[in-house]
Amino acid sequence: MAVRLGDDAPNFDADTTEGPINFYSWKGTAWAVLFSHPRDFTPVCTTELGALAGLKREFDMRNTKVIGLSVDAMSDHRRWKDDIKDVTGHALNFPLIADPERRVSMLYDMIHPNASETFTVRSVFVIGPDNKVKLMLTYPASTGRNFQELLRVVDSLQLTVSHAVATPADWRQGEDVIIVPAVSDDDARRRFPGFVAKKPYLRVTAQPADTILESAATSHENVPKVRR
């Protein structure tokens, strides 16, 4: 049965490049990104894992653990690590699950038979501290993922679970956010002084200061803010 938003993320035991793990024990109370790639020693996947390794510090700053998966054997994972570093300059710094029996792949519905009956597609699951699935992404084999986008959605998820706000289209760390409709105007004036109502249902306010994260991935970005 397919995993859906809000579901408990299935727990599993697996062999990884950093040793055997129980997913829940490994994850603990952190956030987690569980993602699959189609195959080791392939071009797009090599760039993806290198890109993610380069952003590992950013995920650490967000209390978010990262773990990859493919149906390749552990011996392939271990040999492939050298290529990833060679090509991208980033050594693999997170565990990779070897799932040749496709147990975890099937558990998370990462094999889409009309794309490939054997290999995982590019799935991403963001799992919260409560072990619930917070976000899912699915890309085909031909399209490498944007891991800055993954950081962006983690920022949004972490912001919106702790404050009564949502994030608009293309929102980025530090930009204005939307006050959720469940908050009355009176309550909004108290909690978000100075908010701007563009429409009765669209009220914009600054991102709560205690949630603004200054990091290498965001502090040098010069993107236009949502106009208030």
Binding site: T42, N114, A115, S116, Y139, P140, A141, S142, T143
Partner: peptide, 10 residues
Amino acid sequence: GCEFDHLGRP
């Protein structure tokens, strides 16, 4: 090598 159709399938 591997090419893909319009749905990203090899």
